[in-house]
Every structure is written in structure tokens, then in C-alpha cells.
Simulated assay, not measured.
Amino acid sequence: MVVRSRRGFTLIELLVVIALIGVAMVAMSIGISQGLQAARERQTLRDMVYALRQTRTHAVLSQAPAVLRFDMRQRWFQAPDQPRRFWPASMAVDLTTAAQAGSGLAFYPDGSSSGGHLSVARGGQRWRIDVGWLTGNVRWQITP
């Protein structure tokens, strides 16, 4: 009696493997897109801190007041001589500053500022960017 062994895979086995690969690709693409969105939002937060520091430097070097402007409705901020930077709709930004500064943070030639802070929230994460009025120092931290 001759026993023949079969080599290869059945059609069902191949379909199962293809289905598993498809499920893995979908799960991976969702994870990657969420990771990219979170990275964009963190970069926007760093851009805000950088724009504040850049505006302070601009005021000191030019020996003239400089203002970092914010538009909360259209979700943008703009440093002097720089293009507008937009933040994603998934980020909630709240600005608290002196009334005379309007919707911005002012920096003066001696390095001081109008003072204030930005509260930034995304999902369950919250950050606070503080601007000292006396020194114009910009600090940011995660808040509980």
C-alpha cells in the first residue's frame, strides 16, 4: 500500500491567514493614526511654547513691545513676523491674561510681560503654559 503525503495548504487555511493579516493591518493603522494625531498635538504645544519664547526674544532684541496673538474661534496663534499656526480642533485652548493685552500675551523690551497662562487640554490630558509677568519666563507642565 502506497501512502501519498500532500504538501501545501488548503484554501480555507489560506483564507484564514489572509483574514488575520487584514485584521492586523486594520488594528495597526488605527494605532498609527492615533499616534500620529497625538504627536501632532504635542508638537503644537511645543510650538506654542517656542512662539512665546520667540516673542519675548523679539521684544528684547528690537527694544519694542511684541505680542503673541491668539484667535480662539479660528484656533490660531501668531508670533511677530511669523505665519499663523493653527491648532487641531481636538485641542481645547484657554487663554488668561491681562485685559490690556486683549487676546494675546505682550512682552516688553526689558523682558517682562503682561503675564498670564494658557490651559491646553486634549482628551484626558491637560497642560498649563505659564508666562511670568516680571521676568517673562515661559514654563509649561502637565496638570492633573
Rank of each mutant, 00 (worst) to 15 (best):
1 M>A: 12
1 M>W: 02
1 M>Q: 13
3 V>Y: 10
6 R>H: 11
7 R>A: 13
8 G>N: 01
10 T>Q: 01
11 L>I: 15
13 E>L: 02
14 L>S: 11
14 L>K: 07
14 L>P: 09
14 L>Y: 06
17 V>T: 12
17 V>S: 07
18 I>N: 06
19 A>Q: 04
19 A>R: 02
20 L>K: 08
24 A>W: 03
24 A>Y: 01
25 M>E: 03
26 V>C: 09
28 M>I: 10
28 M>Q: 13
32 I>P: 02
33 S>E: 06
34 Q>E: 15
34 Q>M: 14
36 L>S: 14
37 Q>N: 12
38 A>W: 14
38 A>T: 15
39 A>C: 11
40 R>N: 11
43 Q>E: 11
43 Q>R: 14
43 Q>T: 13
43 Q>N: 13
45 L>A: 05
45 L>N: 05
49 V>G: 08
54 Q>H: 14
55 T>A: 00
56 R>D: 02
60 V>Y: 05
62 S>D: 10
65 P>V: 12
65 P>Q: 12
66 A>W: 00
67 V>D: 03
67 V>Y: 00
68 L>Q: 01
68 L>P: 00
69 R>L: 10
69 R>G: 01
70 F>D: 00
71 D>M: 07
72 M>K: 07
73 R>M: 10
74 Q>N: 14
75 R>F: 03
77 F>C: 01
77 F>K: 04
78 Q>G: 03
83 P>H: 02
83 P>S: 08
84 R>S: 04
84 R>H: 02
86 F>P: 01
88 P>S: 07
89 A>E: 14
89 A>R: 11
90 S>H: 09
92 A>T: 14
93 V>C: 00
94 D>E: 15
95 L>S: 05
96 T>Q: 13
97 T>R: 01
98 A>I: 03
99 A>I: 11
100 Q>S: 08
106 A>L: 12
107 F>C: 08
107 F>Q: 01
108 Y>A: 03
109 P>Q: 06
113 S>V: 08
114 S>P: 04
115 G>I: 13
117 H>N: 14
118 L>C: 02
118 L>N: 06
120 V>L: 14
120 V>Q: 01
122 R>Q: 15
123 G>N: 06
126 R>I: 10
128 R>P: 06
132 G>K: 04
133 W>Q: 08
133 W>H: 10
134 L>S: 15
134 L>I: 13
136 G>A: 12
137 N>W: 04
139 R>F: 06
141 Q>N: 15
142 I>Y: 09
142 I>W: 09
143 T>W: 08
144 P>W: 10
